[in-house]
Design a protein around this nucleic acid. Structure first.
Lengths: 120, 120
DNA sequence: GCTTGACCTGAAGTGGCTTCAGGTCGGTAT
DNA sequence: ATACCGACCTGAAGCCACTTCAGGTCAAGC
């Protein structure tokens, strides 16, 4: 797979993918004879998972830990699962937070409505 | 009100509040004879609203527009309401996105479970 | 009178990218 | 054959939204 295709698939930008490789968030990608990156299905899948983690607010430092576990092979799967569980927890917390803020904004909007009615 | 109290109230850090003032996101705050900032109730309320906007992902550039409307007085309330409505829309979109990602993570977790069962 | 702690400032540092300048390569149109 | 194009490459610089730092003022309490 070409880098542009992985970008399309994952929603990450081409630069972000290169940046993630340089930062050690994914394995070093194989190159073709032309010097261009050739992504395996496994590489692409991993980057797709990273994209989900990033989109849900996981920090690079945490992603790096996760990536190091990934690089150490299948024996780390239980640990990876634990990390993912913890992240799902923090995602749920974030969702609850956003829900709280939504009601705050709604109340503020209501206030604006009242002010505008009074002035009419 | 002292800056530390406003920080406590809004959840913004003391530095962020100073940074917001410097960036024109809130009115220039009055100073006491000692040179320290004295926040009015109105200032504090405004910063509290800003905190909600920031927490729900509004960009500084957008906040600045909103702040400029605020600085121009009550006549801009309808425009401010429109801006807030638009932001509520984008918040709802963000919430939907997070919900999608949550199911993706759940599926991934399930896969890990299966792998771990197989290996047992 | 000396220390402590909350405040002040401008400047530099950080995370997580994005953009830029400049270069290589393979394919196609003239 | 050569000129151009687009996709890729690199390292470095830029950007946003803060945070941290170095160094300073001042009032209050010991």
């Amino acid at each position: 797979m070409k880098i542009s295709e992985v970008a399309e698939l994952t929603g990450l930008s081409v630069s972000t993918i290169r940046f993630y490789e340089k930062s050690g968030l994914c394995p070093i990608i194989q190159r073709g004879t032309d010097g261009k990156r050739r992504f395996s299905k496994t590489d692409a899948d991993w980057l797709d998972l990273l994209a989900s983690l990033r989109a849900t607010g996981m920090r690079m430092s945490e992603m790096r830990i996760f990536a190091d576990l990934y690089a150490s092979g299948d024996a780390t799967i239980p640990k990876r699962k634990d990390a993912l569980l913890a992240h799902r927890q923090s995602l749920a917390a974030r969702q609850a937070e956003l829900e709280r803020y939504r009601t705050i904004l709604d109340r503020k909007l209501q206030k604006y409505d009242e002010i505008m009615k009074d002035q009419k």
